[in-house]
Amino acid sequence: MKHPILIDTDPGPDDALAILLALSARDALDVVGITTVAGNVPVAQTTLNALRICELAGDLDVPVYAGCDRPILRPLHTAEFICGKDGLAGMKLADASRAPAAPHAVNAMIDHLRQSDVPLRLCALGPLTNIALALRMAPDIAAKIDRLIIMGGARDLGNITAAAEFNFFVDPHAAAIVFDSAIPITLFPLNATYQAVASTERLGDLDGTAPVQAQVLSMLRRNRAGGAALGGDKGHPMHDPCVIAYLLWPDLFEGRDCHVAIETAEGPTVGRSTIDWWGRSQEPPNAHVIGALDADQMFARVAVSLRSLDHRHESDSKAKS
């Protein structure tokens, strides 16, 4: 049975790979929509990027909805210094041939959840602004969310400040709303995702002559100032693809139930996620937090999935000729 999923994202290089992985897994995942949010770059660009990534995958049926252009209470912080001016530095993608769908992403999220015959899984790859506002506007949708899989937070050090991971730093108030929602959550913090480094060895199964794989390789092999610093010097960490890989291959991941609290007060620790890994607070768990993963197997399986997208390209080209 296919799992219906909704992807909330701010593409972003690792978001791009996550979306491609989801679209490649048609037998396992039904991507009912993609909602975009401001984060890595402003929302107009993240929306354009989501449309371009869908076109690269050869999938024009998945609706893309433009979402919030700023956090709930803070000014927007973006990350062009990591991902480039257009958010997808290293990829040479054609302009999108279609416009984003109506309505606004928050309304679209509410509509998809209310109208679905089965609970949906939400994949959160960027700041949680859209999801938090949807929960505030329509509290009933919480019952229609089977699980929320989030890339965000840090059990140890941050990557945008000493204390905070980027997604939670951009909109800590949204993160606090989500973790207070009682929705089942699986969390991928930095200590897990920095294990998923795209090293030369792990990229060895990708074919640089195939359209989709070539774009991915171009993106992952480019020099990126500070991009790999926290994960060592072997390559860029692929944070967001872990979320989709978890849906496809849960056997590759290990974690434990923890209480997670988000710092919303302005100051040097704003956006920090306090992950009670050892249960010291006695607070009830509100997330299943991933702590370890088999990165070698994950990248090997990602390569197989991406090859299926290139096979689809070949089939479409033959059909048109």
Rank of each mutant, 00 (worst) to 15 (best):
A22T: 15
S24I: 05
R26N: 04
D27N: 12
A28S: 01
D30Y: 07
V31M: 02
V31K: 02
I34C: 06
I34T: 02
T35V: 03
V37M: 04
G39F: 03
G39C: 07
V41R: 13
P42S: 10
T47H: 02
N49P: 00
R52F: 03
E55W: 11
L56A: 09
A57W: 05
G58T: 10
D59R: 14
D59I: 15
L60A: 03
L60E: 05
D61Q: 08
V62S: 07
P63T: 12
V64W: 15
A66V: 12
A66I: 13
G67Y: 15
G67A: 10
D69M: 11
D69H: 06
P71V: 11
I72E: 05
L73H: 14
L73D: 14
P75Y: 11
P75M: 10
H77D: 14
H77P: 00
H77G: 01
A79I: 00
A79M: 03
E80A: 08
I82R: 04
I82W: 02
G84A: 00
G87A: 04
G87N: 04
A89G: 11
K92W: 13
K92F: 14
A96M: 05
R98S: 15
A99D: 12
V106A: 02
N107W: 14
A108L: 12
S116N: 08
S116D: 08
S116F: 10
